[in-house]
Nucleic acid binder design. Sequence first.
DNA 1: ATGGCTTCATAGTGAAGA
Length: 253
Amino acid sequence: MKIASWNVNSLKVRLPQVLDWLAEQAPDILGLQELKLTDDMFPVEAFQSVGYHACYSGQKTYNGVALLSKTQPENVQIQMPNFPDPQQRVIAASYQDIRCINLYVPNGQSLDSDKYVYKLNWLEALTQYLTVELMQHPKLIVMGDFNIAPEDKDVHDPSAWIGDVLVSEPERAAWSTLLALGLHDSFRLFEQPEKLYSWWDYRNLAFRRNRGLRIDHLLVSDALKVSCHKSYIDKTPRKWERPSDHAPVICEI
DNA sequence: ATGGCTTCATAGTGAAGA
C-alpha cells in the first residue's frame, strides 16, 4: 500500500500535475494540503474519473486539506475536535483498519509573531488529539506539511536558519512530543541519502542549488512501523513547469 | 541584500507562505 502527502500550493493551479502524478505513481492514498479553494470548487469529478474518491475541507484563499483514495473513505472527520478553528488544516478518514490523518500545520511566520503562538498552541492540541486517536486506532498514519524541520540534517544550511520558524527549539520539542506518543518518522526508518528535502523556496534558484528543508512527513504508529518497508521523496514534480514549492513524500506499508 | 518568487486577493504602504 502506497501512501503519499503533497502540499500543492493551490489545487486550482496544480490540478493537472496532481492528475499526472496520480497516473504515474498510483498511490492508494494521497493527502493534499494548501488547496486554497472553497469546497464548491473542489474538482470531485476530475478525481472520480481517474478512479479516486475524495474527502476535503477547503476555504477561500488559504489552507484547505483533502484525502484522495482508491477505496471509499470512512468516518471522515474535519478539524481536531478539541481545537475549533476557522482555518481548515485537518482531515482524517479510515480505510479498512488504517486511520489516516492529514495535516497542514501552521507556518508560524516568525518567532515573535502571534502566528507562532497559534502554531505552538495548535501543536499542543494536536498532541492531545493524537493521544486519543492512537488509543482508538492502533494502525495510524499522520501525514502532511508539518512546517517543522526535525533535525539540522533536514536543513540545507542550519546556521542560516538559526532563530527562524520551522527549526526553533519549541517546534522541535513539539515534534519530539508527537513521536513520543508512539509515532515514527517513516523517512528515518531507513538509510537515506544526505541532503534530501521536501521544500525549496521559489526564489534564488533554491531548487537547483538544493537549498531546501525537509518539512513534509509521514508518521506511522508502532503497529504500522513493522510493515513499513519504504519511505522516500519524489523530487520529479518539483522539476515540472510551474511547480508547487513542495515535493510529494511517500511511504509504503 | 529583509529581497529574491508564487498565489490569491484587490486596486494597498498587499498578505502570506517557508
